[in-house]
Design a protein around this nucleic acid. Structure first.
Lengths: 250, 250
DNA sequence: CGCGATTTGTGCACGCCTTCACAAGCGCCT
DNA sequence: AGGCGCTTGTGAAGGCGTGCACAAATCGCG
């Protein structure tokens, strides 16, 4: 533990980085940190104090060497011969992910999916707070969903001033998504989670992540198809080839 | 063009697939095919007949070279100097993904999220059909959602016999997910889409894909955090000028 | 009929990520 | 205190994916 290496002080950033707080975390590592975090919370609730890389890797569903390398990237707070201090590691990962500050999320589109997202516990319990719901449909404006009133999308700029919105979630039909994205960007939002099945065009400083439920099914469909076409084959190796747990996000 | 290149040479890595329809498609390619498919459908509705790799790549949000390489993996049905025949390419991709046969999906857990998923149009419109809804909560059994009656999870084996269920979707709380997965596997399901925030343990021949909404947000949170720590650097906001950067796809 | 414009298909190099294997470090037991 | 076993952290190797750059192929036109 001792000092955090984020402090601008910490003399030796391996790279020639003048200031920025973070080492260059590989994107693949970043995508796994939340998974580790969830596993750590589970383990912590189970009463454990420390956990070995082997154990945590199993809980997170990854290879232990990969896990160790991932954690080493962010400074590594493990103890050889013992393992990782769960509470400390949670704190570290939450800091790196920026979860120590609860981020405000706004959700645009309270249709079928948006409605469900508005009430999804996982948001609140994992560092986020939905602060506003928007829709373009006047018949939906005013509706109360899980304690929040749906406002018209035109109010977005105003709300963005009142609350500092970190992340915008788009749950509209595909046709409306680009326009909504533009409005979010104009309102200062720099991170977007897009559930609409379309490609968004945004400025370079805005991050977009996409979740497309149908695509996930189609990928599974491919594997089904392939497996089906293999059943007609001589049994040879029994399919250990493909069974694995891919997490979305490629 | 020409025909498929199954027994592609490449010194022996290609384990002779006697029959199966596919070369070894890279996993990354498979994950992008649905995206191409969606873009193609859009283009087709726009009235176009053919599309260049450049155009399709733009519509799908990827690099054109990558797109060409992806398509070449499945045999390539493009014409040099012209482009790809949209209808033909749609047919090809749908075949590869196994979408020519509408696959039956069952959904377990009709809570907040499951309720929304049950009514999600994207499933029906993109090759899937939800044939059954299950829940363990007796108070939910019997409820009618978008034309389907919620049945008790214990009926799963029976339903699996009546309908050939290709894919199971888990939208239960994390605590129940593993048990549900076990039951799905026991019922013969070999592909699972898991929305519960937990790692599932399944036999090697079962494919699992995971979608965790909170994780997506946490990844965005990291980028927000990083961007915030960089604000002391050059590179002011360039407004919505010629916005176009890609999506974080990793 | 040939030429130029256009676009596909792909060889190649580069960089990222994964995985192995092992030295270094730490705690515990004797 | 010293040795032993366990676990981390990491160097190195290999694999995979990406993107460039270009040859091959095709169409349209003079």
């Amino acid at each position: 533990m001792s000092q955090q290496r984020h402090g601008s002080t910490s003399g030796g950033s391996d790279r020639a980085n003048a200031v920025p707080a973070f080492p260059d975390l590989p994107e693949a590592t970043i995508a796994r940190l939340p998974e580790y975090l969830r596993a750590l919370h589970n383990l912590g609730e189970g009463g454990a104090d420390t956990i070995s890389s082997e154990g945590l890797a199993a809980a997170a569903g990854v290879n232990s060497a990969k896990l160790r390398k991932d954690l080493s990237h962010l400074g590594s707070y493990g103890t050889r011969g013992v393992g990782y201090d769960i509470a400390l590691l949670i704190e570290q990962i939450e800091y790196v992910l920026g979860l120590d500050q609860r981020r405000a999320v706004c959700l645009v589109g309270v249709g079928n999916l948006g409605h469900a997202l508005a009430g999804y516990d996982g948001f609140a319990s994992r560092g986020f707070k939905i602060v506003a719901l928007f829709d373009a449909d006047p018949s939906k404006v005013g509706e109360r969903i899980h304690g929040l009133i749906v406002r018209h999308i035109d109010e977005l700029p105003q709300v963005a001033v009142e609350e500092t919105i970190a992340i915008g979630v788009i749950a509209t039909p595909a046709g409306a998504a680009q326009a909504v994205a533009d409005e979010l960007v104009a309102a200062g939002v720099t991170s977007i989670l897009n559930f609409a099945p379309c490609v968004l065009s945004v400025p370079a400083n805005v991050d977009v992540r996409k979740v497309d439920l149908a695509i996930e099914l189609q990928i599974l469909s491919f594997h089904e198809h392939r497996k089906a076409s293999l059943t007609a084959l001589p049994g040879g190796r029994s399919a250990t080839g493909a069974g694995n747990q891919e997490a979305v996000g490629s």
